[in-house]
Simulated scan of single mutants.
Amino acid sequence: MTINVNVDLGYEFEVKAGIKEVFDVLSDIPVAASHYPKVDKLVDLGKDTFRWEFEKIGIAQFHLQTIFACKYASNRAKGTINWTPVKGEGNGLIEGGWKLTDKKKSTKIVLSLTGELTLPVPGLLKMVITPLVKSEFEKMTDQWVANLSKRFGGEV
């Protein structure tokens, strides 16, 4: 049996680094991914498509692993890096993007992230697993934003 867990996160922050540096880091998917916690492997599938494989987490006798793939599209002129889910790769469908705004002495960053994770756990555990998975996903994404902020010289 499987359960579906929906995630919907949004962040808005400003960093000291210039827009060129921020765009260069965030549009280089392996570099951007290196700041995300608990990524076991990032697999380059070609054609701007990457599969994210996270470390397995154990909950009682269950071990869960999140795996998803996304196709990336970057547009320097618009200050956007977007990703769309690739069906049939793993147990998640994640989409979202970065929107960067040049503030002359800083860069405003907006991150939006939505998706669905399908996890192989008994339905009886849905009430326990769903909030746990959402919380863990949010904590890891919070840490990603914190790591990137630090990389860019901190928030303004």
Rank of each mutant, 00 (worst) to 15 (best):
N4M: 07
L9G: 04
G10D: 14
G10S: 15
V15T: 06
V15C: 06
G18S: 15
K20C: 12
E21I: 07
V22Y: 04
V22G: 01
F23Q: 07
D28G: 11
A33S: 10
H35R: 13
V39G: 05
K41C: 07
D44G: 02
D44I: 02
L45G: 09
K47H: 13
K47F: 09
D48V: 00
D48I: 05
D48S: 14
T49C: 10
F50N: 02
F50I: 08
F50C: 03
W52K: 07
E53P: 08
E53G: 03
F54I: 02
F54N: 07
E55N: 13
K56M: 11
I57G: 04
G58Y: 05
G58Q: 11
F62R: 00
F62M: 02
F62S: 01
L64V: 02
L64G: 00
Q65P: 01
F68G: 00
F68E: 00
F68R: 00
A73N: 13
S74M: 04
S74V: 06
S74T: 09
N75L: 04
G79R: 00
T80C: 03
I81L: 06
I81D: 05
V86E: 15
K87A: 15
E89H: 09
E89G: 09
E89L: 07
G90D: 03
G92Y: 00
L93P: 02
L93V: 09
I94R: 01
G96Q: 00
G97I: 13
K104V: 15
T107K: 02
I109Q: 06
I109R: 02
I109T: 01
G115V: 01
E116I: 11
V121G: 03
V121H: 05
P122R: 08
L125P: 01
K126E: 13
M127H: 12
M127Q: 12
V128C: 08
L132H: 08
V133W: 00
